[in-house]
Design a protein around this nucleic acid. Structure first.
Lengths: 349, 349
DNA sequence: CTGTTAGCGCGTTCAC
DNA sequence: GTGAACGCGCTAACAG
């Protein structure tokens, strides 16, 4: 007997998945080869009706669930699409996430959620980790990323969508609106309505640079009109009604002649509105208030809040659609979609 | 030459990942065996400093990212935890999702998001799909599931956490609060405050049975006090301020002598409040309003809204912690945690 | 501490 | 149509 004919030892290993059945077991039970069972899993054709039924029955009997890791490893698609955002606390991402989840899961893809909490290091390590799943595509918030993140993303063969903001030179796909244009539009609007002392209230945004772009365009516009562009209050707490009220009070103490404020979110704006009323300030006679995102509350506070409508649901749908087109092998006409925005005039301006 | 000594053909296949480098390549470049490279990936020990550095350098040079599917298949953990909820539109899940994502990702796990849109079929197929990743654990919303879902979940070897509601006999782990108790508490409260014609406004909930439990306990309590428990308005639209206003108007048209309403969410309650004011109804003199979830707005509307505070963030943290303990092999003292709730009295009752 | 061998569960080739 | 063998990228088991 030669030593080459057989392995000298049989290795045994614990079966990892206690109850899980495999394709091979399904095949055995159906009395077919594993390959036939595999074919049943895939297309409806290429297997005779008789065998197919036997296989399907066996799958049901064994409560078979295909192992997606193995499927993927053997050459399939992971079907995983990571969604990278700074935080979920910011309600702005929810409608977008929701729209995307709906569309993508309908097409058989799964969303892997990653939040970075605005931490640069966390962002990169999270991304590296998520890329380990060999995702079918990636969705990230914003168009400004750290150097390593950009490199990683640029090197990807799979489609990448940057959402919310607009880039001059997107990594790949891009859906959002122009935050700088929002800043200009709001400032112009307020100036045209005769406001002279125009302030800004927001939260501090490190990586959240699209709001940075918004505010700097806003200030630049004020400056160009010869106005003071330093009437600003910010906080590092997440945006909420309470924070809005507090910042508004601070800002007004510092600049009692303030006659208009633009706030980074509607929550902040509602807080400012409530606080203004508490202080006996007439809105909009003495001070104009304008929010951002046109959330549900805006139309219902009293006086109703002027705000900027941003198409967050639309962004989600378009991002999903772009991704799906590309995954289907189509080449897109446009890689960059500007969904625009609109100032909704209500009673606070 | 015998035909057993060598395969007669060499198979060639397209390399799936264009740019991705593999552990083997890393090992070759570092001049070590693949196994050594693998060990470097894992523990900090068990490889000599010299070799480790060579391997780490090679990983950097090749921009190596481990393939998680392969890792998992070869016996590791998937590190994936699916989170199954009916919808993201319902803001109630966000704080919980957020808390869980934070805690779990800190521990190296990834959240796979699944929304069912309240569709039974979608729920099961989604779950089967997600289970294909051989998740480390599963988090689902609610304690009532379809028959197949329950079977699937019960058969799992991995930890399963049901959140939001409380079950008598949980599948495995359970964190939430008693929605029936909420119904009883609110009804009792309203009755004690002398209200006679107490109504309920909510959205229609098919699978969302914990709100069903809340309302039926509420009605039962009214009935037990000899009151009419059929003063109800519902809609199948997602809960919003606008829907709240509309349902409130409908209900009041039908039952003009209504003197209190319990609403399924604070959004609905704010809508009711706004509509009451528009109709010239005194709140709370003529009609009491009480919301649910004590969201941000509740404290800031005027008059401030009485609501039921539900510890949604806490639920997320506890769920994550239970999962992590179990994944670390610990056995938990309690499998079921009641986080309670609290009626926050403000000006609308 | 390091290398060798086997195999996770599946899809892909090629032969019949 | 169907089956046999191989390999995706990695880790477990064992030997040295």
């Amino acid at each position: 007997m030669t030593q080459t004919s057989m392995p000298l030892k049989k290795f045994r290993r614990a079966t990892r998945q206690g109850d899980r059945s495999t394709l091979r077991e399904v095949a055995e039970r159906a009395g077919v080869s594993q390959m036939t069972a595999s074919r049943v899993l895939k297309g409806p054709d290429s297997v005779s009706a008789k065998l197919r039924q036997r296989v399907e029955q066996a799958m049901r009997d064994l409560n078979y669930i295909p192992d997606l890791a193995a499927t993927h490893l053997a050459g399939g698609n992971s079907g995983i699409i990571p969604f990278l955002i700074p935080t979920l606390r910011h309600s702005i991402y929810i409608p977008t996430l929701n729209a995307m989840t709906d569309d993508l899961s309908k097409a058989g893809y799964q969303i892997l959620l990653g939040t970075t909490n605005y931490e640069y290091e966390q962002e990169e390590s999270l991304l590296r980790n998520l890329l380990g799943w060999r995702p079918a595509g990636v969705v990230v918030s914003g168009v400004d990323h750290t150097e390593p993140t950009t490199k990683l993303l640029k090197g990807l063969q799979q489609p990448v969508v940057e959402i919310m903001d607009l880039a001059n030179d997107p990594i790949d796909l891009n859906v959002g609106f122009d935050h700088a244009a929002v800043g200009v539009a709001v400032a112009t609007e307020l100036i045209q309505r005769g406001r002279k002392r125009i302030g800004y209230i927001g939260t501090i945004t490190r990586k959240h640079t699209f709001s940075g772009r918004r505010i700097s365009a806003f200030r630049k516009t004020l400056k160009a009109a010869g106005m003071d562009s330093n009437l600003i209050a910010r906080s590092d707490k997440p945006s909420s009604i309470a924070v809005g009220a507090e910042l508004f009070r601070q800002l007004l103490e510092q600049f009692p002649d303030l006659d208009a404020v633009f706030l980074a979110t509607d929550e902040l704006a509602v807080g400012a509105l409530v606080e203004a009323q508490r202080m006996g300030k007439q809105v909009p006679a003495e001070i104009a208030i304008i929010g951002f995102n046109d959330q549900d509350i805006a139309a219902y506070v009293n006086p109703a809040l002027t705000s900027v409508r941003t198409p967050r649901v639309e962004i989600g749908h378009i991002a999903a659609q772009m991704l799906l087109s590309r995954l289907a092998g189509k080449t897109l006409g446009t890689r960059r979609v500007d969904v625009g925005f609109e100032i909704i005039h209500r009673a606070t301006t």
